[in-house]
Simulated scan of single mutants.
Amino acid sequence: MVTDPSNIKRALRAELRERRRTRTSVERASATEGFTRNLQKLVTDSGASFISCYLSATHEPNTREFLNWAQANGIRTLFPIAREDGLLDWTQGDGESEAEGLFGMPEPVGEILGPMIINDVDLIIVPAAAVDASGVRLGWGRGYFDKTLGSMQKCPPVYALIFDDELLESVPREIHDQPVDGVVTPTQIHTF
């Protein structure tokens, strides 16, 4: 059925993935500067000293320069490690040492700290395909972050990292989808 949210999500993800894949190197470089500047501002303004962030893959919003800044400024950073059971483990890292994880995504190398350590962070930065005007996050379809965020008793602020054209009027939502508190784009920090 065409109106099934999972089918609509699948089609939207394909469109967004293609849009990311075709961005030019100049667009990516400019976006990276904006992402880095706005992530630094978010962390500084929130007073966060312990954050969770992901290692960006090739076509994702680039987190690498921000992670270098965080490391240089003493911001402790947790990185997600995908498990085969659909949950996330975590490790602390420098944002440089990495290996290929499940699904071919970059993951940090480090001591596994287990899934509960995420409860200690001050701020969570998550990947997203898109986010809508009410904070509904469209992930990439595996549900890792939705499960993690949905299981937290006291969740700190959660911000998704997206390109400006991925902040949409609406995205399909299913019962398991967890909203975010805001987005960081190359040009803005938007809190819902």
Rank of each mutant, 00 (worst) to 15 (best):
residue 59 H to V: 09
residue 59 H to N: 14
residue 60 E to I: 02
residue 61 P to Y: 04
residue 62 N to P: 04
residue 62 N to D: 15
residue 62 N to F: 00
residue 63 T to L: 09
residue 63 T to A: 07
residue 63 T to G: 08
residue 63 T to N: 04
residue 63 T to I: 08
residue 64 R to P: 02
residue 65 E to V: 11
residue 65 E to M: 08
residue 66 F to W: 04
residue 66 F to S: 03
residue 68 N to I: 05
residue 68 N to L: 13
residue 69 W to P: 04
residue 70 A to S: 12
residue 70 A to Y: 02
residue 71 Q to E: 14
residue 72 A to Y: 02
residue 72 A to I: 00
residue 74 G to N: 14
residue 74 G to S: 11
residue 75 I to W: 01
residue 75 I to G: 01
residue 75 I to E: 02
residue 76 R to E: 11
residue 76 R to F: 00
residue 76 R to V: 09
residue 76 R to S: 13
residue 77 T to E: 05
residue 78 L to N: 00
residue 78 L to W: 03
residue 79 F to T: 05
residue 80 P to M: 06
residue 81 I to F: 03
residue 82 A to Q: 10
residue 83 R to E: 14
residue 83 R to K: 14
residue 84 E to H: 09
residue 84 E to N: 10
residue 85 D to W: 10
residue 85 D to H: 03
residue 85 D to K: 08
residue 86 G to T: 05
residue 86 G to M: 09
residue 86 G to Y: 06
residue 87 L to D: 14
residue 87 L to Q: 13
residue 87 L to M: 13
residue 88 L to D: 07
residue 88 L to M: 13
residue 89 D to E: 10
residue 90 W to I: 03
residue 90 W to Y: 15
residue 90 W to H: 15
residue 90 W to G: 04
residue 91 T to N: 06
residue 91 T to H: 07
residue 91 T to A: 15
residue 92 Q to K: 10
residue 93 G to W: 08
residue 93 G to R: 08
residue 93 G to N: 07
residue 93 G to P: 02
residue 93 G to Y: 03
residue 94 D to Y: 01
residue 94 D to C: 01
residue 96 E to D: 07
residue 97 S to N: 13
residue 97 S to M: 08
residue 98 E to R: 14
residue 99 A to H: 13
residue 99 A to Q: 15
residue 100 E to N: 07
residue 100 E to D: 11
residue 100 E to Y: 00
residue 101 G to T: 07
residue 101 G to V: 07
residue 101 G to H: 09
residue 101 G to Y: 08
residue 102 L to D: 06
residue 103 F to Q: 05
residue 104 G to V: 06
residue 105 M to Q: 12
residue 106 P to M: 10
residue 107 E to Y: 01
residue 107 E to F: 01
residue 108 P to C: 13
residue 108 P to M: 12
residue 108 P to K: 02
residue 109 V to W: 03
residue 109 V to A: 00
